[in-house]
């Protein structure tokens, strides 16, 4: 840096390490708890080191399920389907609507833009009751469609894609038209490749968004085979009021956070770019 101050650099590292430790501590405890059996987790100083029951618990939770509930494997699959459907659904809808808004000059264009923009600001949590009634009337309770469509139908990504499209130089469009490309060909062959990075960044954000949905799945699904893994944790904590089976809960929690964490860390660069650029 600018000057050499070994002491203050050391302090900086120390503070950072302390911060990392605080942030990581709950996760370490999760892993620890997932690796012990239930008896050990009820003795009072709780273990801080790893136990030997990790794979035992993993087998139990993934294969058989806990307390007669569905095996976690099915829930993981449900969560995955939901997250992917939301991510892909939102991205394709937003791409198309952003394309329409930026490149086509139809009537009431700005009106549509503002309408989309306002829906964007309304989290599902806020419009939950009316949405529930609509979904129930359409008979979509306990289906993947019911799980995902109301969440897709808020064009979060439209705004970001609009920005991306606006930054594409007009010359590209003119060149494409001179070469005889129609609107759809321009979209597929030029616009999509150009906005590849923002699509990928958006995918990370939306995947996490979809995976972590809680309130909505909680309302829409009553069938045990449609539950998502995030919900199951809640159910397990309620199953036994007095002593929750921590080893199973923590194992499930671990499984529930691995996929989104992997996505975030694996695509860290894109993710950071997407976050800081869209400011969403």
């Amino acid at each position: 840096m600018i000057e050499n101050r070994p002491v203050s650099t050391a302090i900086s590292h120390f503070v950072l390490l302390a911060g990392v430790a605080i942030v990581l501590f709950p996760i370490w405890i999760t892993i620890v708890a997932a690796s012990h059996d239930v008896a050990r987790l009820l003795e009072v100083p709780l273990p801080l080191g790893l136990g030997d029951q990790f794979f035992e618990n993993l087998k139990q939770v993934v294969g058989k399920g806990v307390e007669g509930s569905t095996p976690i494997g099915i829930m993981l699959f449900n969560s995955l389907v939901m997250a992917l459907m939301i991510a892909f659904g939102k991205i394709s809808i937003s791409l198309l609507s952003a394309y329409a808004i930026v490149y086509f000059d139809f009537r009431f264009r700005m009106l549509f833009f503002w309408m989309i923009f306002i829906t964007l600001m309304l989290p599902v949590e806020v419009r939950i009751l009316p949405t529930y009634e609509v979904v129930a009337k359409l008979g979509m309770l306990d289906t993947y469609w019911g799980l995902t469509i109301p969440l897709i139908a808020s064009a979060t990504a439209t705004f970001m894609f609009r920005q991306t499209f606006l930054s594409v130089p007009d010359e590209l469009l003119e060149a494409a038209r001179i070469d005889g490309a129609g609107p759809m060909q321009f979209f597929w062959d030029i616009l999509l490749p150009v906005s590849r990075t923002s699509i990928a960044a958006m995918f990370v954000i939306l995947f996490i968004y979809g995976w972590n949905q809680y309130l909505w799945p909680l309302l829409v699904t009553t069938d045990k085979n449609m539950m998502t893994i995030v919900m199951s944790i809640k159910n397990m904590m309620e199953a036994l009021e007095e002593t929750p089976k921590w080893h199973h809960i923590m194992m499930t929690a671990l499984l529930a956070m691995i996929p989104p964490v992997l996505v975030v860390i694996g695509m860290q660069k894109l993710f950071v770019k997407g976050l800081t650029e869209t400011e969403k």
């Binding site: 911060g19 942030v23 709950p26 405890i29 995976w211 944790i233 923590m250 929690a253 964490v261």
Partner: peptide, 19 residues
């Protein structure tokens, strides 16, 4: 190291802290 609590679902985070 600091980035990934973002990816943890609120419910999961809640469960960790309850534990």
């Amino acid at each position: 190291l600091l980035i990934w609590p973002y990816a943890v679902a609120p419910v999961v985070a809640g469960a960790l802290w309850v534990f």
